[in-house]
């Protein structure tokens, strides 16, 4: 019931996204004629290109067409890529999703461990050094960190490729090698966020009565942390992971460009810069769906972790 309601409520979210996208495209000056016609194209040629792609029609008519096709399950055809929008987006989605997933897994595992360690050893050198580590992670711009990794591991040491993507279906080891640096770059900054949040919510929980009682009863630190405190501290941690998943999509845009990965993020950025409107429109809708799904999972986890949240709805 809860899930069904949440799925239904995704519809207005997607509507908001697609309407905003249309608004933006209406605001953005320039169109595909620049990319195809170049600097020397005469006004007649530009007009002919616009006509070919139906760009001379009013925005409302184009919107009506687009939504009409959408209801028949058609996302349209790219102006430039010689393929349908669905093909273009879905062939890229695995790259972005696997990058984001790898990044999130790495960031969560290390972030949560670091955070717990810091909270349990509150005010010790362990706490301080892991928090300084987390802060440094947070403080370094990720694209810059990625460039440094390329130079160190790609150029100086020559251990890993400097960029490019190998599909997992083609060569598993090649995929691992091509994803290592991007995932590390992505995880490094997000790890800091998760570690900090884990630490502060763990500290909150560790300070509450029932934990004190447990401690007073002589339970081992291990049992207290993993049986009692972590479960209660998970609500904000899951929130941050959900948020991080969203940030990871954004982060993936940047990482994809640094490491030349053909992901959805770069597809959309490129399409904005080239004014390939159908791809922008379809790509944002698909990433929005992914996002809604991630949030749904996060909310289900909430409900599971803290029944009060579910009852509130």
């Amino acid at each position: 019931m809860f899930v069904a309601r949440r799925l239904l409520s995704a519809i207005p979210v997607l509507a908001v996204v697609s309407v905003i996208t249309f608004l933006l495209m209406w605001l953005i000056p320039g169109d595909i004629s620049a990319e195809l016609g170049g600097t020397e194209a005469t006004p007649e040629i530009l007009e002919r290109i616009r006509e070919q792609f139906g760009l001379n029609k009013p925005i409302l008519e184009r919107a009506a067409q687009w939504y009409g096709a959408l209801f028949q399950g058609d996302l349209g055809h790219s102006y430039l890529l010689n393929r349908s929008v669905a093909d273009a987006v879905f062939e890229r989605l695995p790259v972005t999703l696997s990058l984001a997933a790898l990044g999130l897994v790495l960031a969560s595992v290390f972030g949560v461990l670091l955070g717990i360690l810091a909270a349990v050893r509150h005010n010790s050198w362990v706490d301080q050094s892991s928090m300084v580590g987390a802060l440094i992670g947070l403080s370094i711009p990720d694209f810059w960190f990625g460039l440094v990794l390329i130079i160190v591991f790609g150029v100086l040491l020559g251990w890993l490729p400097t960029g490019g993507y190998v599909p997992i279906t083609e060569d598993f080891l090649g995929w691992v090698r091509s994803m290592t640096l991007p995932a590390l770059t992505l995880a490094f900054t997000q790890m800091g966020v998760i570690a900090r949040m884990t630490r502060s919510s763990m500290l909150d929980v560790l300070d509450q009565d029932f934990i004190r009682t447990a401690r007073a009863k002589g339970m081992s630190a291990y049992t207290v942390v993993f049986k009692h405190a972590l479960r209660n501290a998970l609500v904000p941690i899951v929130t941050v992971m959900g948020l991080t998943a969203g940030v990871l999509l954004s982060g993936a845009v940047v990482i994809e460009s640094v490491f030349s990965l053909p992901g959805v993020g770069r597809l959309i950025v490129g399409s904005i810069q080239r004014r390939d409107f159908p791809i922008i429109q379809g790509g944002l809708l698909v990433t929005a769906c992914v996002f809604v799904f991630v949030n749904l999972v996060v909310d289900i986890l909430y409900g599971w972790l803290d029944p009060r949240v579910r009852n509130e709805r």
Partner: peptide
């Protein structure tokens, strides 16, 4: 709650960097 959160979800569903790029282009 539902109203505000769905509106915010709509905005959040836009990856931030892409929103910034699109806004800067516009």
């Amino acid at each position: 709650d539902a109203f505000v959160m769905r509106g915010l979800d709509g905005l959040m569903a836009f990856p931030g960097v892409l929103l910034a790029i699109a806004l800067a282009a516009a």
